[in-house]
Amino acid sequence: MNIPDRTTIVNFFRRYVTVLDGPLALIVFLIVSTGLITLYSAGIDFPGRIEDQLRNILLGFVIMWIAASVPQPVLMRLAVPLYTIGIALLLAVAMFGLIRKGARRWLNVGIIIQPSEMMKIAVPMMLAWFFQRREGQLGWREFLGAAVLLGIPVAFIMKQPDLGTALLVTASGFYVIFLAGLSWKAIAALVATVAASLPLAWSMLHDYQRQRVMMLIDPSSDPLGKGFHIIQSMIAIGSGGVTGKGWLQGTQAYLHFVPERTTDFIFAVYAEEFGLIGNIVLLILYLILIGRGMTITMQASSLFSRLLAGAITMMFFTYAFVNMGMVSGILPVVGVPLPFMSYGGTAMVTLGFGTGILMNIQRHRKLVQT
């Protein structure tokens, strides 16, 4: 029997494991573990849900490892093809995509995919590449060009319609533009323009989107209809109290009052079972995740990596903030998953890819220093 020598084991570890950033991997592991514990409780009436999520996590880990392992120049070269393929797939969705629940968001390419999800990463990659190519000569033309690159996929996604994903893609792209040096005067002008266009934007919203906004203002106006989601999630969060009802003891989930309890509203299940203390612990975990991402951003070795790392980190923040906000009743329901906790394969792959990019940027910085 051949026993591998110590040098072989050490070389294997260095080659295949040290590409991962330890602190980031640990915090993601803790959040994913928390999500699995909560999903087991939330999905007890959904046979196979845990097994499917474990498969999703494994796939997300593989994508994360690949993204962390490739040389950074290769990552940069992927920006334009990934963005172009994404636009082509969005165009294909608009022409002959699958329609479900009145929305045309999916495409059958042998498997069912949702191309808008990949744009959450493809857009900031493309914009970071765009600004990297024009480093040292950024003017209003460059920022206008970046706005066009952002506006094209957002327009396709809004047409589907998918307001939640459109907002996330817009946010991820805006973070890159902001970090690239967009002036505060331009930001003020942008805010004023958005405020002035709100009446027009309101008229362009679909009826169900307007109803979601109105339910945010007064969910009790339709407690058994459009306001049901918000009311029941707030009841679940409030009933958890300080210490929670205990794992597997959440009545709102078990009595099927919490809607979409394994996906968008998993935070309501978690809050009911683990209470205020559990919520604080989860918030701390997300803050550490964002803090680690910002540390990687500040230490990045190039403009491309700095812009991309900052956008991905802030995307994680936006995911968590919007999800917790809509479940708590302070934001409209827009269908945004809780990162690394909500059930879903596409979101886990996207998050894994983003995490792998952060690890790639950190690894490249260390290689440059040595």
Score class of each variant (00 low, 15 high):
residue 233 S to L: 03
residue 237 I to W: 01
residue 238 G to A: 15
residue 239 S to Y: 02
residue 241 G to P: 08
residue 241 G to R: 10
residue 242 V to W: 15
residue 242 V to N: 09
residue 243 T to D: 13
residue 243 T to I: 14
residue 244 G to C: 05
residue 244 G to T: 08
residue 244 G to Y: 03
residue 245 K to W: 13
residue 247 W to S: 10
residue 249 Q to L: 14
residue 250 G to Q: 04
residue 251 T to C: 10
residue 254 Y to T: 11
residue 254 Y to P: 04
residue 256 H to D: 15
residue 257 F to M: 08
residue 257 F to L: 10
residue 258 V to H: 07
residue 258 V to A: 12
residue 259 P to R: 03
residue 259 P to G: 02
residue 259 P to D: 08
residue 260 E to G: 10
residue 260 E to R: 09
residue 260 E to Q: 15
residue 260 E to D: 15
residue 262 T to A: 11
residue 263 T to K: 06
residue 263 T to P: 07
residue 264 D to A: 06
residue 265 F to M: 14
residue 265 F to Q: 12
residue 266 I to T: 03
residue 266 I to V: 12
residue 266 I to A: 05
residue 267 F to R: 00
residue 268 A to S: 09
residue 269 V to D: 01
residue 269 V to N: 08
residue 269 V to S: 06
residue 270 Y to C: 06
residue 270 Y to N: 03
residue 270 Y to S: 05
residue 272 E to T: 06
residue 272 E to H: 06
residue 273 E to D: 09
residue 273 E to Q: 13
residue 273 E to W: 01
residue 273 E to A: 04
residue 275 G to Q: 13
residue 277 I to F: 15
residue 278 G to D: 11
residue 278 G to F: 03
residue 279 N to A: 12
residue 280 I to F: 14
residue 281 V to H: 03
residue 285 L to Y: 13
residue 285 L to P: 05
residue 286 Y to C: 02
residue 287 L to G: 15
residue 288 I to N: 09
residue 288 I to R: 05
residue 289 L to A: 13
residue 290 I to H: 07
residue 290 I to N: 07
residue 291 G to I: 07
residue 295 T to Y: 09
residue 295 T to P: 04
residue 296 I to A: 13
residue 296 I to V: 14
residue 296 I to R: 01
residue 299 Q to P: 03
residue 299 Q to Y: 09
residue 302 S to A: 13
residue 305 S to T: 08
residue 306 R to S: 12
residue 306 R to A: 10
residue 306 R to Y: 08
residue 308 L to V: 03
residue 308 L to P: 01
residue 309 A to Q: 05
residue 309 A to Y: 01
residue 310 G to E: 04
residue 311 A to Q: 04
residue 311 A to K: 00
residue 312 I to R: 00
residue 312 I to M: 02
residue 312 I to T: 03
residue 313 T to C: 11
residue 313 T to D: 05
residue 314 M to W: 11
residue 315 M to H: 11
residue 315 M to W: 12
residue 316 F to M: 08
residue 318 T to N: 09
residue 319 Y to W: 12
residue 319 Y to M: 07
residue 320 A to D: 06
residue 321 F to K: 05
residue 323 N to T: 08
residue 323 N to R: 03
residue 326 M to W: 10
residue 327 V to D: 01
residue 328 S to M: 11
residue 328 S to H: 08
residue 329 G to Q: 12
residue 331 L to T: 09
residue 333 V to A: 11
residue 333 V to I: 15
residue 333 V to Q: 12
residue 334 V to I: 14
residue 335 G to T: 11
residue 337 P to R: 05
residue 339 P to L: 00
residue 339 P to V: 00
residue 340 F to P: 00
residue 340 F to M: 00
residue 341 M to Q: 07
residue 341 M to Y: 01
residue 341 M to P: 01
residue 342 S to Q: 00
residue 342 S to T: 00
residue 342 S to F: 00
